[in-house]
């Protein structure tokens, strides 16, 4: 199959162009594996679920088509910035809903959003390393699932503890809390950086 380059685009009739792309899609369909596609489907479903759950109940219906489209972008390109954008959009939506005193967000819903967004993140991390035509054994998925489950369980316990210790949410920002939050973020960033660059640094080291 001869590739139709962007320069020679106009030289080919529409029918030939459509046929060319159909042939490419068919070839991709023949090559794709169930496991490779399953990872992309999981990315799409978790992204869609996270976005919809983050929205207030009254907005879920109208926002569904947009959410479906937005969730498709990270599924198609799991190594792109669309993954982070979708997760930030979901977290931002939850934050706005929490700030709005007329709406109430239940903790189980927050836990579900957290679980879906983390599953979205980790499945995108896996999808970024696998082509859709990669043969993947079940052991990979089992290991990935078990680790994600442990992380979610641990972080849920930790988060619930922090929420209980911090007491009831306050309306508006507080300088002390802001400083505490900034310090916690800095500590987390330093910890992650230290873990990455320990033992003489990751890149170039044996």
């Amino acid at each position: 199959m001869t590739a139709i380059s962007s320069r020679g685009w106009r030289r080919y009739p529409l029918v030939e162009r459509v046929g060319y792309h159909l042939a490419r899609v068919r070839a991709w369909g023949r090559r794709a594996t169930v496991a490779g596609l399953a990872v992309r489907v999981v990315i799409w479903l978790t992204g869609l679920g996270g976005l919809l759950l983050a929205l207030p109940g009254s907005l879920r219906g109208p926002a569904l088509p947009l959410a479906v489209f937005l969730a498709l972008l990270p599924a198609v390109a799991p190594a792109s910035a669309w993954v982070a954008l979708l997760e930030l959009a979901a977290i931002g939506t939850v934050a706005l809903t929490l700030v709005d005193e007329s709406r109430q967000v239940l903790v189980p819903v927050l836990l579900a959003v957290a679980a879906l967004l983390y599953a979205h993140h980790t499945s995108a991390a896996l999808g970024a390393q696998l082509r859709t035509d990669t043969v993947v054994p079940l052991a990979v998925f089992r290991h990935w699932l078990a680790r994600a489950g442990l992380v979610l369980a641990g972080s849920a316990l930790l988060g619930l503890g922090i929420v209980v210790l911090a007491g009831q949410p306050r309306a508006g920002a507080d300088t002390g809390y802001l400083a505490l939050g900034a310090a916690a973020t800095a500590v987390a960033a330093i910890a992650v950086g230290a873990l990455v660059h320990r033992s003489g640094g990751p890149a170039g080291a044996d």
């Binding site: 977290i91 939850v94 934050a95 929490l98 700030v99 967000v105 903790v107 927050l110 836990l111 959003v113 957290a114 679980a115 967004l117 983390y118 993140h121 992380v151 979610l152 972080s155 849920a156 930790l158 988060g159 619930l160 922090i162 929420v163 911090a166 949410p169 306050r170 309306a171 508006g172 920002a173 507080d174 809390y177 802001l178 400083a179 505490l180 939050g181 900034a182 916690a184 973020t185």
Partner: peptide, 14 residues
């Protein structure tokens, strides 16, 4: 921290 909504820690945790 900025919004004083500690429930957001649940999202940041994982």
């Amino acid at each position: 921290a900025a919004l004083g909504q500690w429930e957001l820690v649940l999202l940041a945790g994982p």
